[in-house]
């Protein structure tokens, strides 16, 4: 029982990180139609923004986190300006290939800057443990789950209770109509990239202390976040959350009860099963056309 509680906590924490990465991915996808193959590298960059601010620059924790997230927001804006904006009139496939190229560039830039030796990004709750129903669980894992819950709530408020959020949803649903209603579409698309990058940054900062900060960490995260969106329902935000938690739990529980060698096989096996049996995912697209 104690083991199970520990595993569930760790699985939910890992799943929360996947969920945030998947949400960032979905926000960009639904606003711009671009499948961002650099999404995993965005998370890696978030982790290394933490490494740069906390370890290299030696900033105190709250300041360092804020600086890392501001850096990620600037990176999102830069990505919009350098990759999306010049290619926006080309077919969307061109932009997607652009994200692949940038992903490879980012990974190698990180390798050049930080080297191949992994870093240990500290947690504000370094080494702290707490007893829950007889099980000892890490405070960091609980904090990750709580932070993710707060982020999701804030995101929901943004998208449903603020003018900019409602406008973002409008742009995601019909760009042409949004133009005709006087919305500043390019600003809203830029904001989507910034938001996607910041969410990836939060995921990266939380993941750093759970894994090692390794320049090659982006690819496995991208694959898990992608699996999460397929399982949850491509383009759906609740789906990204459910799918992310599902993949995280499957990975941790599978590693413990089945075999750690097969933990990825379990997550991807479930994804393939979904593609075969229920390709629209758990939350099939709720929006339909009415003739």
């Amino acid at each position: 029982m104690a083991d199970l509680i520990q595993l569930l906590t760790n699985g939910l924490a890992l799943g929360s990180v996947y969920a945030l990465a998947a949400i960032g991915f979905v926000i960009v996808y639904s606003a711009t139609g671009v499948v961002n193959f650099a999404a995993g590298q965005f998370v890696m960059l978030g982790t290394f923004a933490g490494v740069a601010m906390l370890l290299n620059a030696g900033l105190p924790m709250p300041v360092g986190y804020a600086a890392a997230l501001i850096a990620m927001a600037l990176f999102g804006a830069l990505f919009y300006l350098v990759v999306y904006l010049p290619l926006r009139t080309s077919p969307v496939v061109t932009v997607i290939i652009g994200t692949v190229a940038i992903g490879i560039t980012l990974q190698n830039a990180a390798l050049l800057t930080f080297g191949s030796w992994p870093f240990r990004l500290p947690s504000p709750f370094e080494g702290m443990m707490i007893e829950v129903a007889g099980a000892v669980v890490s405070v960091h894992a609980l904090a990750v789950v709580a932070t993710t819950a707060v982020m999701i709530f804030l995101l929901w408020l943004l998208l449903h209770r603020t003018a900019i959020g409602i406008a973002m949803r409008a742009v995601a649903q019909d760009v042409k109509a949004a133009r005709l209603m006087g919305l500043r579409v390019q600003w809203l698309l830029a904001f989507s990239w910034i938001l996607g990058a910041v969410l990836a940054g939060v995921a990266g900062l939380m993941l750093g202390p759970m894994w090692f900060a390794d320049v090659n960490m982006g690819d496995p995260i991208a694959l898990k976040a992608f699996a999460a969106t397929v399982i949850g329902g491509f383009g759906s935000l609740p789906g990204a959350i459910a799918g992310g938690l599902f993949v995280g739990l499957a990975e941790v529980l599978g590693a413990s009860y089945i075999s750690s060698a097969y933990k990825d096989l379990i997550a991807f096996g479930i994804m393939i099963l979904f593609l075969l049996v229920r390709p629209q995912g758990i939350f099939g697209e709720p929006i339909q056309d009415r003739g």
């Binding site: 949803r169 649903q173 042409k176 109509a177 929006i287």
Partner: peptide
Amino acid sequence: RIFPGLSVEENLVVATSSWR
């Protein structure tokens, strides 16, 4: 070209000439 996933009220509110 109604925004399909926005409520009736959101469809109206989003079109106020400036979101500011």
